[in-house]
Design a protein around this nucleic acid. Structure first.
Lengths: 203, 203
DNA sequence: TGCAAAATTGAACGCCGTTCAATTATCTTT
DNA sequence: AAAGATAATTGAACGGCGTTCAATTTTGCA
């Protein structure tokens, strides 16, 4: 039955063409201008077709947000080469921040917007986020086993570390950093992360 | 000219009735369900009237976001009674977090959403945010004068501290905290802030 | 070739923010 | 008190949105 297989290939192909169009529009024009109609326009199909491949708009953006996590995970892989857990933790932060600064819209989709989460069957099952946070948890756990962060609790400390980096980049992405004296947003984040690293180094 | 004054009063009154309706809808139903039509419905006027009192929807939400900052500022006033700068800094964080947890939608509007900023004539003039950040800056500056945070730079450290608390509450508000072991969001934030305070206390 | 099944369409529904000519209400002047 | 001017208010209309679904076209098979 080669035909059924070819049909399956066609379906997969159109699905990925839809995602290509959605991704391009999202990165070029932003979330609001990426409408179901504009996606359909770009692939030269009628709007209705999108609903045979995705339940709704949220599901399309959920798929895109998974791509973002795949890329972030890829970047995190270099960390396996860093054996010192404290160095690994610091490098992890730099990678996280680097991804956010280089892909602000993707970061926004992954960690700020509601859309991708609304496509989740069960809200407490955000696997993509869980993977990233687990990486952080493991690294901080290794730091503690190596004698750092005495008198701290793993979970709270992990969440606090995540909060520092998320706070910095999300304040930037959502335009709240004009209150800072430093005019260059990237510089602000680098400096503030530097201050955080300095603190970590003394723990 | 009592008539002109009464007319002025009427204008102000209707304007605040519009804001009352917008505020109520926003807090009851969220941003998306607070449409110009639903606001107009609630005050029993036609939709067009809103545009004689506000330039657009963003301006309405800008006005609401100012109310939020007024309340946050009011809460911050108790800090003048805390003379020890480190204690003041720690209390400031608790007030900030408390406001965010008790008014998640308002916090979202003030520090996450784009709408209120899009009503700003000049994006770099976000006075409300600047006031809050200045309070933080001054307190940290006092801490440094008292001998804390040696080898740290005021601006970077202030931004980092802001990032910690903003990160914690915004990850909560935008539903990214289900990855945490602790099931109660408030508890997570309290514990993570506790970890941060513990670090500050040793600096 | 004809028929069932699958893929695709595009009009329609009920929303949205915004605009503006037309209408109504109010104040001023005679 | 009437008429005219001014201000306040209306509501229909525009173009857009996400989504649905009967109708149509395309495809695979007997």
């Amino acid at each position: 039955m080669g035909i059924a297989e070819r049909k399956e290939r066609d379906k997969v192909e159109l699905k990925s063409r839809i995602l290509d169009a959605a991704r391009a529009l999202f990165l070029e024009e932003g979330f609001h201008k990426t409408s179901m109609r504009s996606i359909a326009d770009r692939i030269e199909y009628s709007p209705g077709i999108l609903y045979h491949y995705f339940k709704d708009k949220n599901e399309i953006f959920h798929a895109l947000h998974i791509e973002g996590f795949a890329e972030l995970g890829r970047r995190m892989q270099v960390l396996s080469a860093v054996s010192n857990p404290i160095e690994r933790l610091k490098a992890m932060g730099r990678i996280y921040i680097g991804y956010a600064i280089e892909n602000p819209d993707m970061y926004d989709l992954m960690f700020i917007m509601q859309a991708p989460l609304d496509a989740l069957p069960d809200k407490s099952n955000w696997d993509e986020g869980e993977n990233v946070f687990n990486g952080l948890r493991l690294t901080i756990s290794a730091c503690m086993k190596a004698g750092h962060f005495k008198d701290h609790e793993l979970e709270s400390l992990s969440f606090m570390v995540w909060s520092v980096v998320h706070g910095m980049v999300s304040l930037n992405i959502r335009q709240r950093c004009h209150v800072l004296a430093c005019p260059d947003p990237n510089q602000c984040v680098d400096d503030a992360y530097g201050a955080f690293v300095q603190i970590i180094d003394r723990m």
